[in-house]
Amino acid sequence: MLPGMANRPDDKVLMVRYRDGEVQAFEVLYARHKGPLYRYFLRRGLGTEPAAELAQEVWMKIIRTKDRYEPSAKFTTYMYRLAHNCLIDLSRRSAYKITQQVIGDDIDVAGLPATATANPEAEAIYNESVEQFRSALANLPDEQREAFILKQESGLSLADIAHVTGVSTETAKSRLRYAFSKLRQQLIRNRDKA
């Protein structure tokens, strides 16, 4: 457990408090998950604007349906299930295809983490490796990429990933394993090249 986690109110508790009318609880919840949700859409291949629109759609659904919220499952599972469905709806209504090419366009450079060193050459190498990883992620089949993103962004378990994506735990594990293997091989190839 990370430092400070002990006093961190559970997501479900926050959502129940918000359901009961405590808006501050929602503010905490939103601050905690707004970034991961937004990045979930970005990494799935959406540009910043569609990612923001879908994120807004998910949050509005959470707000609108708060009175029916039952803390039976993890809040993140509930939220990403909504996000997963929103993305499917988007692809259906606008014939929008989640493509590998979109990912990486439209990236806010200011949002990228600072490089570890002030050395320009090392910085260039670092940035190149990041872009290679980004490209490798974008080249993953969408189902594998989604499983990997869910794992990395919110630390969902295999069972949670299975629930969000509507598949069995074994299928979710298989997808995640493929994603892991492909990304690791890409990493090794890039190292060899360097």
């Binding site: 970034g35 806010d108 949002g111 983490p113 992620l137 990395q152």
Partner: peptide, 10 residues
């Protein structure tokens, strides 16, 4: 590596 992709915010 994934973390290095950035922590974009809405």
């Amino acid at each position: 590596r994934y973390q290095a992709l950035g922590s974009e915010q809405p």
